[in-house]
Computed example of a mutant assay.
Amino acid sequence: MFGVVFAINSSLHSYLIVHYASEDGVSMDVGFYYMANAMGRLIGTMLSGWVYQDFGLTACLWVSCGFLILASVISFWLPQKAIQ
């Protein structure tokens, strides 16, 4: 079940990054997205390990909730383009 959710999420991200990319710089925009994604995975892994070791599972869940709220707020500033 989780594999299906991750597959749908991955395909949605791939579509959105190409949709929001400028026409003359799609490869640079896609490359920046994958670079930022990889950096986020690395930092997220290290941050979650540190928070869990020093503060426990409850703190991990609160930090995760905080990042979820932050991502939701930031998404409001995405440009409103019509999906074609």
Rank of each mutant, 00 (worst) to 15 (best):
I69V: 13
L61E: 04
I17T: 09
L57G: 10
N9F: 14
V26P: 01
T45V: 04
V73L: 15
W77M: 13
Q53H: 07
H13R: 15
I74W: 13
K81G: 10
Y34W: 06
F55A: 03
E23S: 15
K81L: 12
L61Y: 13
G3P: 01
A36C: 09
F67R: 08
Q53Y: 05
I83V: 10
I43H: 04
I17A: 04
G25R: 15
G25N: 09
I17S: 05
A7D: 13
S48W: 02
D29G: 06
F67A: 06
A59G: 01
Y52H: 08
S27Q: 11
Y52Q: 09
A59M: 05
G40Y: 00
L47G: 00
F55V: 00
G31P: 00
I8A: 14
L78N: 15
L78C: 12
N37D: 13
I8H: 10
N37M: 12
S10E: 13
Q53G: 07
Y33I: 01
M46P: 00
G66V: 01
L68I: 09
A38P: 01
V4M: 14
I74A: 15
A7N: 07
V51Y: 00
F55S: 03
G44V: 02
G49D: 03
Q53F: 03
D29Y: 09
L68Q: 06
F6W: 07
Y34C: 00
Q84W: 07
V18K: 10
V63N: 00
M46D: 04
